[in-house]
Structures are given as C-alpha cells and as structure tokens.
Design a protein around this nucleic acid. Structure first.
Length: 475
DNA sequence: CTATGGCACGGATT
DNA sequence: AATCCGTGCCATAG
C-alpha cells in the first residue's frame, strides 16, 4: 500500500500515521456498537486528551440537538444529496432505549462473552428492588447470581430454600418477580419455563389460543426447536397451518434464552451459534408522510466525543517533562476521532447503497430479497471487498417492522428462493414432491436443483412430501 | 421404482 | 487461505 504514496513527499512519520490511520479504521469498522462502546470507553479512560461532551450534538454537523434525536439539519442535507426516492441516512448520537418496537425480549443484550456478566443481575435487581423487602433482596441476589449466560437459572429452588431456611413458596415468589422483569423469563429453570412465562405475559392468557400455545411449549419443545411443525400438529391434534402459525409466533416473539437478544428468525440449521442479536447498530424506519426510508446509524455513546480543547491548550505550554507524552496523547486522540469519523462515513455510504438495492426487502419482507454479494457492493462503492466484509460483520439492523436481523442477512443468496418455496408449499393442495417443487420454482425463475429444494425445505423446517400427506389426511 | 437424506466435491464468496 | 453453498451421486426407506 506504500505504493499509493509514491510521488508525494512524505516524511516517515506522516507515512506511519497514514498507515496507522488505515489500520485503525479497519479495526474499528469491524466493531459493532457494543464493542465500539467498550473501545471508546477504554480510550477515554486512558487518554486525557479525549473528552466526552455531554449533551446531545449531532455528530455529523456538530450542531446541538434540541430535544428530538434526529438532527433536522443533517437529515435535511442528506436527503438533498440522496434525491427523491433514495433513503435518508444519518448518524444518530444517543443510543439509549433502542430496541424493537414490540419492546420485549429483544430489549436487553448483555451478551458478549466479554460483556460484564454482573450487568444482568444488577439490571434485574434494579427493576424489582423497590418491591422487595430486605430479606427478599438477599434471596433475589442469590438467585440472580445463579443465572448463567443464557439467562437461565442453574440452581435448584429447593436448595436455595434450604439455604435460607425459608419455605419454598417464598423463594418462588421472588423467582416469579425476577422472571417477569425485563429480559422476560430470566431466571427460569429451563428454556421451557422461560417460554411459558413470556407467553403468559405477552398473551395475558385472555387470548383464546393461549392454552394451545401453552401446550405447544409444554409438549413440543424439541419440535419447536427443530421446527418440526408436522410433529407438533400431530401431537396437539391441530392442522398443520395452525402448527406453523404457532411455531412462527413462538419463534418471532419468545426467547428460550432470555439473556440473549433474539433467536430463530434466521435459520440456524447448524444448531450452534444462536447468532446472538444485540441492540441494532442501524435502524431503518420510514416516515408516514414520506416514501423515503430513514436510516439511523447508531452512535454508541451519549454526547460528542472530541479532543478536549483545554488539553490542546495545555499541550502548547506543557512542562518539559510531560510535553512528549501529552503530544502523543493528543495525536492519538485526533487519530481515533478521525478513524471513527471514517468508520461512520463508510457505514453510512454502505447503508445508502444497501437500502436502495434492498428497498423492497426492507419494506415488504423476505420474499423481495435480492441476492447481492459483498463483492459487487465493493465495486459500487469503490472500496476493497474486505472493507465491506468488516463493515457488515457482526452488525445488526432493525427493520421498519421492528424485526432485528443481522446485516449479513442482506447478502443471503437464497432467502428469496426459500420464501418462494414456502409460499408454494403453503398453497399446495396436495403435497408436492421435491422434483415438482423444483420445476415450479424454475417456472418462477428460480432455477435450482432438486437436491437443493430438499435442503431449503429442511432449512424452513418443512416436512418431506409423504409426511405432509399423512398429516393433511389426518386433519 | 420413487422420493429423500448423506457425503463430498468444486466453484464462488469472504 | 478458509468457508459457504449448490449440486451430483449413491444408499436407503417407503
């Protein structure tokens, strides 16, 4: 890369700075907002030249924001640049209380291995603290420390009861409170119990189907997990459509691992890595009166990060002994800020293109996904592929529907075919064999091999044709 | 014999 | 260079 700089007279240090700049931008780009928060916080702690100005500033145009979080000036400017149908993209500084509009299970997410585990317990304790007597507090604390990374309780209630010499009902009462606080279902003894709690709170038990859902969770955990709707239908003696509806609802709205943000929604056939989704790094919404999409790139901190002007002054007449150190601090601070700006710029541009390309998908759902590759995007943006990879890695997006998906999902090559397949099967009168499905899909323009149909079918948890037949006959 | 799932290969993607 | 994904071939079940 040194080649780029041929012809320019650069001193060694400038060159070093340029490469350092690049390197740091790269590494920052790969971080999502949570990781970035940590990074910035530690930088803030170590480097006296940095300061976090409180109050809300637009990180882009540096105007102070009055109340409303989107910066009117910026978004206006962006929209002018973007033109009519194109999205408005802007940075948004505050990052508190973001979360799906539905507002439940995906809210909290202290879920990175490095993320402080103490946070979850304290977080919960803060919620319920007011309702507890002092002695109950102790029980709660005890319970909360026994919660594992998934948000499930590892200890047995009886043991704890013994430990405190209290009747088990006392412990249960506290446990109930905990389970009903924010990451709904935390501190349940099993995934199943967690689901039941969530179900109870969400549906308020006045829904007519409540008992059905309840049974589905009680009886069919494995079936839900593997998305075997067929088996579920059989077990509950209901139609397969109903079974699908139930599983879908559960997958969309409930969370067997309360400490993790989301589950399902992306097919992890490869059981592992339940791809923990966190607070979104990017939020896409739209204004009612406007066709344009509004894209907010989240800024992980409150306020504006900048070089402390006082420090800058101080460096000028620094005492001999400290001068060098301070100078270095200052440079690093500048560098960090520059890199952050660069990172944001890259992400904003990336999102601009993506929202244009995947507009249909964003608004209308999976079926309208267009297969795009990182490589193509890289050409379009005029950056290296790896830049895109980094920018996409580990980030998540909240769609207007409130659904949170990984940014990498925008590059899923087969999603649109799979949804086509799903609708096909949903409409079938008699079970279609994979071969027939393949032909039908080909007519719709999705040329895939028979073998691949089977794979997709599996991914979506749809049973093979003959099994579907027996089920339909039964109902 | 037909419909599917398993294994593994090759090309594309990252 | 490592990984993912579609696909072909073959074994197995119905």
């Amino acid at each position: 890369m040194a080649v780029q700089y041929q012809g320019y007279k650069q001193t060694g240090s400038q060159k070093a700075q340029a490469t350092a700049h690049l390197a740091q931008t790269m590494s920052l780009l790969a971080l999502n907002s949570q990781e970035l928060t940590q990074k910035i916080e530690s930088a803030l702690a170590e480097n006296p030249a940095l300061e976090l100005v409180d109050g809300r500033f637009c990180p882009k145009c540096h105007r102070q924001l009055k109340g409303s979080s989107p910066c009117p000036v910026c978004s206006f400017k962006e929209s002018q640049i973007a033109g009519e149908d194109e999205p408005i993209v802007f940075l948004n500084s505050p990052s508190d209380n973001i979360g799906p509009r539905s507002g439940q299970s995906a809210e909290l997410s202290e879920d990175f291995p490095t993320a402080d585990k103490e946070d979850l317990p304290t977080y919960v304790l803060r919620q319920i603290g007011a309702d507890l007597a002092a002695d109950e507090m102790e029980i709660a604390a005890h319970l909360l420390t026994a919660i594992n990374d998934d948000g499930l309780l590892e200890a047995k209630l009886e043991d704890i009861a013994q430990f405190f010499f209290r009747p088990i009902s006392d412990i249960e009462a506290v446990a109930d409170l905990i389970q009903r606080s924010d990451p709904l279902g935390v501190g349940s003894e099993s995934s199943q119990a967690a689901l039941l709690v969530q179900l109870e709170v969400l549906m308020k038990s006045d829904d007519e189907d409540y008992s059905l859902y309840r049974q589905a969770v009680m009886g069919g955990m494995e079936k839900l997990g593997k998305r075997r709707q067929g088996d579920l239908a059989k077990k509950l003696n209901i139609s397969i459509e109903k079974a699908k509806e139930i599983t879908q609802y559960i997958i969309d709205n409930l969370n067997p691992f309360p400490a993790r943000a989301y589950w399902g929604s992306k097919r992890n056939l490869t059981n592992d890595a339940p791809t923990t989704l966190q607070k979104p790094d990017i939020i896409i919404g739209h204004q009612q009166d406007d066709q344009r999409l509004v894209v907010e790139v989240m800024w992980p901190l409150f306020g504006l990060l900048r070089v402390n002007p006082l420090f800058k002054e101080a460096v000028k007449n620094a005492p001999e002994a400290k001068a060098d150190d301070w100078q270095i601090d200052l440079e690093q601070a500048n560098l960090l800020i520059k890199c952050l700006a660069q990172r944001n710029h890259t992400i904003v541009r990336l999102m601009q293109i993506i929202t244009i390309l995947q507009r249909e998908y964003i608004l209308n759902g999976d079926a309208h996904m267009k297969p795009i590759t990182r490589a193509k995007l890289a050409i379009e943006l005029g950056v290296h592929e790896s830049t895109i990879s980094r920018a996409v890695a580990g980030k998540s997006v909240q769609l207007p529907s409130g659904k949170i998906v990984l940014l990498s999902q925008f590059f899923d090559r087969s999603l649109h075919v799979r949804t086509a397949l799903k609708t096909l099967i949903a409409q079938e009168t008699k079970p279609l064999s994979d071969t027939k499905i393949a032909k039908l899909l080909a007519k719709e323009g999705h040329e895939i091999a028979r073998r691949t149909v089977a794979k997709y079918r599996n991914m979506e948890g749809i049973l093979p044709a003959h099994m579907r037949k027996t089920l339909l006959a039964k109902v």
